[in-house]
């Protein structure tokens, strides 16, 4: 197995620079104050959350076509890492919303579809746990992964259209409305760092699963040899 250092070191470097930019370089936002810095974590986490379900979709299709365990591992690992990032969005969102909007939660299209995405991730991971045969687990979870991923944009659009008919109190401008250049730079840097982190964690998770497979194969081989020796 090739080492993951080629990905690990750029990721670490990017994270360190982003942290510096987020807390020291980027100016404090005038109306929201320090709490606005959550933005640099919150939005990139949401992006990686959606990236995860896209990878689940892509790897699941490839698994069904090629019937290769490697794609099953990749789909499952993408779901796990995606679920973690989505959980981070759901935690960082309310922390930011409370001081700014005065409420932890609002049924806005982005929030709702993220919440549904999170539920789809958990359904997918629970399904994998409850399916006992490895072949069945791979195939059935791939089917659900594809259906769930197709559903995410539909959920988002249906919520947007729903919103246009249910007026909500105005909650200030969107987060990307006219970012100051140094803030935009910090944001893009953080976005890159999160993307690298996502791929690093994804590759690591795949490695663990591949090792578990190999360990199991060795176990089986050992057992047959022991029995033959008797």
């Amino acid at each position: 197995m090739r080492s993951l250092n080629w990905l690990l070191f750029p990721t670490l470097l990017l994270i360190l620079i982003s942290l510096y930019c987020i807390f020291i370089y980027a100016p404090t936002e005038s109306s929201m104050g320090e709490v606005q810095r959550i933005f640099y974590f919150h939005v990139p986490s949401a992006w990686t959350g959606f990236l995860g379900i896209f990878l689940v979709f892509f790897c699941s299709i490839l698994f069904l076509i090629k019937n290769d365990r490697a794609w099953d591992i990749r789909a499952a690992a993408a779901a796990e890492v995606g679920a973690i990032f989505t959980t981070m969005v759901l935690i960082s969102g309310p922390l930011w919303a409370k001081p700014i909007w005065g409420i932890y939660w609002t049924w806005d299209a982005k929030l709702t579809s993220l919440f549904v995405l999170w539920l789809i991730y958990l359904g997918y991971l629970l399904l994998r746990r409850l399916l006992e045969s490895p072949i069945q687990r791979a195939r059935l979870s791939a089917v659900f992964g594809i259906i769930g991923a197709i559903d995410v944009p539909i959920v988002y659009m249906s919520n947007r259209w729903w919103r246009t008919q249910h007026p909500q109190p105005v909650m200030g401008g969107g987060e990307s409305s006219g970012l100051e250049p140094s803030m935009l730079f910090t944001f893009l840097l953080s976005l890159t760092a999160f993307t690298f982190l996502f791929f690093l964690l994804w590759r690591m998770r795949c490695r663990i699963e591949e090792s578990a497979d190999r360990l199991e194969a060795l176990h089986r081989e050992l057992n047959t040899r022991l029995q033959e020796g008797k």
Binding site: L126, L127, V143, G148, W162
Partner: peptide, 28 residues
């Protein structure tokens, strides 16, 4: 999704967990 969840240990519980988020747009 019912055909998928019938293969799990707790199929009665699994179906709503898989179906309700996916069917949300239809419900809306």
């Amino acid at each position: 999704l019912a055909a998928i969840s019938m293969n799990t240990r707790m199929s009665d519980v699994m179906l709503p967990l898989l179906l309700l988020p996916v069917a949300l747009p239809a419900a809306i």
